[in-house]
Amino acid sequence: MSRAERPDTARYIAYALVAAGALLLVSPFYFTFVFATHTRSAIFDTPPPLWFGSAVLGNYDMLLERLPFWRNFGMSVYVAVMTTTLNLLLCSMGGYAFAVYEFRFKRALFALVLASMMLPAFLNMIPSFMVMQFLGWIDEPRALYVPGAAGALGIFLMRQYISSGIPKELIDAARMDACGEFRIFWSVVLPLTGPALGTLGLITFINSWNNFIAPLIVMRSAENYTLPLALRSMQSPNNTEWGTLMVGSAIAMLPLLIAFFFCARRLVAGLTAGAVRG
């Protein structure tokens, strides 16, 4: 389709611009890893270090000195795994119901699910803090994974997948065999939703892993901090140990970077699924 135009110069400039833009976009990640291998004073040299140094172990030791780092890491993992597991179960249940059953108020209820996605998060910040206080969940990890245990986006994704990907005959056949309703869902439908569960799991895990505002509001003691909160607590206006902080940042980023490397396609498809529903 490109034969009609004046080729070459303009096009190569465009390629170069796109490539330069991509490099510019990933360069902060590069510097995170580079700075992780330098001491604080080396980072503050002029010019700043552009290549890897050798201070990574020292930085790591200081990280463990300053933060209960692996405990924070474990907390992040725990909260993300709980959120993901609960969402996979509850969203596939909800999506299944909206996809295969006919019941009273179905349309209105589904509209409510969609509408709940539109509510801005900050509106809930203060009152949900008070609900947590009332429940006695302040500083408890469950305050982080229970409220979002059945996300609306997940229900929407699972409904789309089940209604287009699972034949109704299959469900009818299972019913003929006198399977109970939950049994049909659990052993007939759920095993067939693998790809959708994969996408939903990835999205949920990433969102939970990166969540900052919810832990900021409910987590109180340093050993219960999730990683974003723990890293932020090391920042001080004057003498932040940047190298140490970058080691922590790099370790915190790695799981997602690796997951992204392997599942970029599925992730992107899932994230935009809501957008192309038309």
Binding site: P28, F29, T32, F35, P228, L231, M246, L256, V268
Partner: peptide, 28 residues
């Protein structure tokens, strides 16, 4: 290319803010 442009979106805002705080530093 799409992956490179997309990575910032899935990275923790705290990690992003921390690295930019150093990149933006006045003297260094």
């Amino acid at each position: 290319v799409v992956g490179a442009y997309f990575i910032p979106y899935i990275t923790s805002s705290v990690a992003i803010a921390l690295i930019f705080a150093t990149l933006y530093s006045k003297d260094y």
